[in-house]
Computed example of a mutant assay.
Amino acid sequence: MNRRLLPLLIAATLLVVAAAGWVTFEASRKSAGGAQGAFGSAFRLTTMNGEPITEAAFRQKPSAIFFGFTHCPEICPTTLFELDGWLKKLGPEADGVNAYFVTVDPERDDAATLKAYVGNVSDRIVGVTGEPDKLAAMLKGYSVYARKVPVEGGDGYTMDHTASIYLLDSKGGFFGTIAYGENPDTAVEKLQRLAKS
């Protein structure tokens, strides 16, 4: 690994962890007091299969939602792989949970790119993309942190972003999060409780 990139990666990781804590706090604050309605905001985006998707999809049955991007070097592929494995551990219970990977990088992550990326990991997680302004509004409505970070010495960029999986109950209410690096047994228990919500 390039030694000049190490401080950037460490700083990015610390930002992601801090953002995850803030998101959990914000989500808890927004849904304090229990059943106050659905978490987040209205949106109209596109799945990796080219189909329209709105906030109604998060209110049909419990949902596990991860926000990431296909050029992510570690956090996103690891989280997708783990989420797929945890859902497999649930067995038939997993049929009661929808799982989504929403890009925070719509400029590079079109539907075809998402389909190839997510499809390499899971056949039950649905990728979601859309026009940059619509996605930005959706991320804001769900208290998701995402920011472009230029790559040192290059023309490209990476993304700092919330690294937690959001859990929403069957009415779209905030149910909790699974943190990046969380104990796998705890993550499976959270998904089991989610499936019954």
Rank of each mutant, 00 (worst) to 15 (best):
A56R: 12
Y145L: 02
A18M: 11
T158M: 07
I165S: 06
Q192L: 15
M1R: 14
A64F: 00
G154T: 13
K196I: 07
Q192M: 14
V121K: 10
D185F: 08
Q192C: 04
D185W: 12
K190L: 13
R4A: 13
S164H: 11
A64C: 06
M159P: 09
G127N: 02
N2Y: 08
M48I: 08
T113N: 08
V17I: 15
G85M: 06
W22I: 12
V118I: 08
G40S: 07
T78H: 09
L80F: 05
S28T: 13
S41A: 14
E74A: 02
F174Q: 11
E107A: 15
F66K: 03
E55T: 05
A163T: 11
A35H: 13
Y180V: 10
R108A: 10
G34C: 09
A111Q: 12
A18P: 01
L80T: 01
F25A: 14
A11C: 04
D185P: 08
V118N: 00
A111W: 04
L45S: 00
V128I: 06
L14W: 12
N98V: 00
N49L: 11
E26I: 08
D110H: 09
L8D: 13
R59E: 09
G153V: 09
V17S: 12
F101D: 03
G153Y: 05
V102E: 03
L167W: 03
V102S: 06
G37N: 11
P106H: 05
T24Y: 04
A163K: 07
N49Q: 14
F174A: 13
T54S: 09
T79L: 03
H71D: 04
V144A: 00
F66G: 02
I65W: 05
D123N: 06
M138P: 01
G154C: 01
K190F: 03
I178P: 10
R193Q: 14
E26F: 11
L168N: 07
K88M: 07
L5H: 09
A20I: 02
A12K: 13
L80G: 07
D95P: 01
M48H: 12
I65S: 01
R124A: 00
R3H: 11
A32I: 06
Q192D: 14
D109I: 08
S31V: 05
T162Y: 09
Y157S: 05
N183L: 13
G68E: 07
I165A: 08
S31F: 01
V16M: 15
D155A: 14
A99T: 01
I65N: 05
F174D: 12
V144N: 01
D95C: 02
A111C: 11
Y100V: 01
T113M: 13
R29Y: 03
P62N: 04
L83F: 07
N183C: 10
T113F: 09
A20N: 15
Y180F: 15
L168G: 09
L87P: 01
A38F: 10
D123H: 00
N120R: 10
K148L: 05
D110L: 03
T46W: 12
Y145M: 06
S170W: 03
M1N: 06
